[in-house]
């Protein structure tokens, strides 16, 4: 197991180098000068000399290979450089937003698991009954309704009925749990519903497949109760694809809540990503892509470890 872990962690290094190289060159292929955007997009008559001076200060006047060299040296020292827009370290910019996105992702995941696992089991066990139909309607609705639209509806409903909105600005859960939950629960629900819908569908189909297996039939033939068959024999196997989906969705949520963050005025990674891209903030884009790559790799690692916990055959192999 330790060897497996070490191997997977070592695999991080070439993956990240590949991501870094591809990102560095790809974002520089896209036209648009971040300095011109910064100084002239608001219409100011900033002189060409000023533009050149700022470009020089930011190191953007250097040849591409020299910029790449600086980037690689910085990366080796754990320095992702400074944001071209704010001048602040990229790591600091990300660190400010990361807790918001992480918390919403965790809360949405909890909501999704709490909804999807029981509903998926019910739907599979009571296949083609009214219970199954109701669960399928809930799940298909979750897939069809965009999270941001649901979020907007929730905001409008709160405004119309209670004349209240969640507070703007993120406060740590350790500082003020009430304010924290007020700000994050609605985005977590709006995202979590869609997330739960995906996982419910997956849970249902995986469990249905497992319930058709010979060993399940054998267990039933032995006279075991349905509950016991499902809980002890079917569920663990059926959970494997569900865990995969939940893991991937969780990683996606860290950087993918672009519109939902805007709807709820959340200062998260998705919003930062959009702002960085709009402004052509190369260094920040690189940092964010690397961060998301690390998250995907780590989440996949955790999913692999969970496979081992759920299925002893995988652990042994």
């Amino acid at each position: 197991m330790i060897l497996f872990l070490v191997r997977r962690i070592l695999l991080l290094i070439p993956t990240l180098i590949g991501v870094a190289v591809v990102t560095f060159f790809l974002i520089r292929v896209i036209p648009g000068d971040p300095v011109v955007v910064k100084l002239r997009a608001d219409g100011a008559a900033v002189t060409e000399e000023t533009i050149q001076a700022e470009r020089k200060r930011l190191g953007l006047d250097k040849p591409l290979y020299a910029q790449f060299g600086d980037f690689v040296v910085g990366l080796a020292h754990g320095d992702l450089g400074n944001s071209l827009w704010t001048g602040q370290p990229v790591l600091k910019e990300i660190a400010i937003r990361f807790p918001v996105s992480l918390q919403v992702a965790i809360m949405a995941t909890i909501i999704a698991i709490l909804i999807s696992v029981p509903l998926g089991i019910l739907s599979a066990v009571y296949r083609d009954t009214w219970i199954d139909y109701v669960v399928r309607i809930i799940a298909v609705s979750g897939l069809a309704i965009p999270s941001f639209w649901l979020g907007m509806l929730m905001i409008l409903a709160l405004l119309s009925w209670k004349n209240w909105l969640p507070p703007i600005g993120y406060v740590s859960i350790f500082q003020d749990p009430v304010a924290n939950l007020q700000a994050t629960i609605m985005p977590a629900i709006s995202v979590g519903y869609r997330y739960a819908a995906i996982a419910t569908r997956m849970m249902r189909s995986a469990l249905l497949e497992v319930l058709r297996e010979d060993y399940i039939r054998t267990a039933k033939a032995k006279g075991l109760f349905q509950k016991l068959v499902v809980r002890r024999h079917a569920l663990r196997n059926a959970l494997l694809p569900v865990v995969t989906v939940i893991g991937l969705e969780f990683a996606f949520l860290i950087g993918g809540l672009v519109v939902t963050e805007q709807v709820f005025n959340l200062n998260g990674i998705g919003k930062l990503f959009v702002d960085a891209t709009t402004r052509g903030d190369f260094n920040l884009i690189q940092g964010l892509v690397l961060m998301i790559a690390v998250i995907f790799i780590l989440v996949n690692l955790v999913v692999d470890l969970l496979y081992g916990l759920l299925d002893p055959r995988i652990r042994v192999s």
């Binding site: 405004l159 004349n163 909105l165 703007i168 805007q262 005025n265 200062n267």
Partner: peptide, 15 residues
């Protein structure tokens, strides 16, 4: 409060 433009009206309505 730094908000996107579409957040101004709900923010004012919500106080």
């Amino acid at each position: 409060f730094f908000v996107k433009s579409n957040g101004v009206v709900p923010g004012m309505l919500g106080g």
